[in-house]
């Protein structure tokens, strides 16, 4: 076994229930701590993942339980790549249509920040809709 092997491809999945998202977060934190990510990077990855998974449950599955949400964590020393996949409805165009602006704070918004936060925190982002469902790819540089 190559002791220097430093790349990982970890697959996680939960049911489409908001109360299971914290378990996913715990798993990501455990992975990040094991890989010695900084608290800053790990917090940013967790926020991106949680916002993306909340969007899946709310929009792709319309808050219906009993559906799978998959998260793939691809790690290399240079980068963490998260792929959030589901088999639900296509995401609304306003969620993935180009760069997202945050809502105006003066309007006292109570939501609508999710994709804006992901865009602000990710180094790259890509949304794919195919026959199997939705796939959101987000990357975070570690160097």
């Amino acid at each position: 076994m190559d002791g220097n092997y430093k790349e990982y491809n970890i697959r996680l999945s939960i049911d489409s229930r908001l109360e299971q998202v914290r378990v996913l977060s715990g798993a990501l934190r455990g992975i990040g701590q094991e890989l010695q990510l900084t608290d800053d990077k790990l917090g940013q990855l967790e926020l991106m993942m949680v916002e993306a998974v909340n969007n899946v449950i709310e929009h792709a599955y319309q808050l219906q339980e009993g559906n799978d949400v998959h998260v793939r964590v691809e790690y290399s020393p240079q980068e963490v790549h998260l792929i959030i996949s589901d088999h639900g409805h296509a995401m609304p165009d306003e969620l993935h249509g180009g760069v997202r602006d945050m809502p105006d704070p003066e309007d006292l918004p109570e939501g609508g920040w999710g994709m804006g936060l992901i865009h602000a925190l990710a180094d790259s982002i890509r949304y794919i809709r195919d026959a199997r469902g939705n796939h959101l790819h987000v990357s975070k540089q570690l160097a």
Binding site: G43, P105, E106, L117
Partner: peptide
Amino acid sequence: TGIVADLFKLTRMERV
């Protein structure tokens, strides 16, 4: 603190 403070800053809600 940390990512919680970042959330307020990134959304600019720390102004509100």
